[in-house]
Nucleic acid binder design. Structure first.
Lengths: 132, 132
DNA sequence: GTATCGATTTAGACAATGTCAAGATCGGAG
DNA sequence: CTCCGATCTTGACATTGTCTAAATCGATAC
């Protein structure tokens, strides 16, 4: 269980019940929720929270570097509690998104791209998760 | 100038003025248009074309493998006349999307991902295009 | 206790993206 | 010409995301 209040304070954000609910949903939830996923699950602990507050809070958290934001799914941005560099695998059947540790893959040849200043990059893979 | 009629026939799609306009906009246009970009530019040659037809046609073309579809920009899917495997670079300042040839980059380590069956992958880079 | 002030939240309006259904339209076969 | 199937258009609808005005909350001052 993460201490949402502490985390918010460390980022210079006033903790409120609504913001605490949002932080807990993203950080303790599993996976890569959309804003709407967060809204629904935040309402379980804070039933009156509004859509605008969820969006505002998520954007605030992204701005402060507390969570990531990925545009890898059709229709809606997803938020990512993992702020370390990592790659992504998307299961085409289920839509589930999995993190792939950064050091599992090595991308060679970026230095050949003379015309581009690469500030960040990631590998995005699609396919099926094997059932073990 | 691509022969849109021929291309459509080869895919088993009835050529119509609307579909021809859509195909020409995507294939002859530069870059990675959104559906709305295509709608606007298709209306220059076929002023009555409707939004639904543009969406239907684009989805049809994707289904037939004539164009690609990428979810790399926030807010809207982009379509891609380049159906060869390739990577993408996104200019954070302008939002422009550039194709990076497949053989410029080499991704090592995919075979280590035992739990995933990778059907396709690409490297997505963000940053700034250098002015020469 | 109460008034006040700033920050936060809410509700609803709004724009954009994308899908869908119903009716209109088009083109070819008989 | 008529009919029929395919295609197109229009408008409704759901969803995502942003914005604004009004309500609410909390802390401080009196």
């Amino acid at each position: 269980m993460t201490d949402a209040i502490l985390i918010l304070r460390q980022c210079g954000i006033q903790p409120t019940p609504q913001r605490i609910a949002v932080v807990e949903c993203v950080l303790n939830g599993n996976g890569h929720p959309t804003a709407d996923d967060v809204l629904i699950s935040a309402r379980k602990t804070c039933p009156t929270v509004s859509r605008a507050t969820v969006y505002n809070t998520l954007n605030l958290l992204v701005e402060k570097g507390l969570i990531g934001m990925q545009t890898i799914r059709e229709g809606a941005v997803v938020f990512d509690p993992n702020v370390e560099k990592h790659h992504h695998f998307i299961d085409d059947d289920t839509g589930d998104i999995y993190d792939i540790p950064w050091d599992q893959l090595d991308v060679k040849g970026k230095d050949k791209l003379k015309d581009f200043e690469i500030l960040e990059f990631q590998v995005i893979m699609r396919g099926r998760r094997k059932k073990r």
